[in-house]
């Protein structure tokens, strides 16, 4: 069966014809829309590497059927920076060495953006750790990631206040 799906991806409207209903959002992004920044680590919602924002909320794109998301607004790691200007979360990940191999990083960053948007963790490292626990890291970059999220959260908070 053929399905027509319209998505807004990183601000750009994408009309997609799916010849196969099985396509997940993750595989749509990676294999059909050439947006390979989002990573597949487990394909089962167990690692968080595929985290993207759908309608502003962080979800696992590997467990979302593309057909079911018709009309959704999707933001991936490729859509985060404004031109050459990195998002504060991205910049903080570099400054705090919040990654090693970099494979889980797009998911960690998108999850951190989602976490900060949710505005529940604040500057409590323990709440940040809990809120980021859906994103596994095998290299062991956890300390840098939490430092980076804390710093980005503070920066964005200052920006909001100012």
């Amino acid at each position: 069966m053929t399905l027509s799906v319209t998505l807004t991806v990183n601000g750009v409207r994408r009309d997609v014809t799916l010849e196969d209903p099985r396509v997940t959002l993750l595989d749509l992004l990676r294999e059909r829309l050439d947006l390979v920044g989002t990573k597949k680590g487990c394909d089962r919602g167990q690692c968080g590497a595929c985290t993207v924002l759908v309608d502003g909320r962080r979800i696992n794109s590997c467990l979302a059927l593309a057909a079911s998301l018709d009309g959704a607004d999707v933001m991936t790691i490729e859509g985060l920076a404004k031109g050459d200007a990195l998002d504060p979360v991205q910049a903080a990940f570099i400054a705090h060495d919040g990654f090693q191999c970099g494979f889980c990083t797009p998911g960690q960053i998108m999850s951190a953006v989602g976490l900060i948007n949710e505005a529940e963790a604040g500057d409590d490292p323990e709440r940040i750790r809990e809120g980021m626990s859906g994103n596994l890291c095998r290299c062991g970059a956890h300390a840098g990631i939490v430092e980076a999220v804390l710093e980005a959260q503070k920066k964005l908070e200052q920006r909001r206040v100012a």
Partner: peptide
């Protein structure tokens, strides 16, 4: 390679 890795372009 930091910039590449945080922008999904590595």
């Amino acid at each position: 390679d930091g910039h590449l890795k945080v922008t999904g372009t590595a």
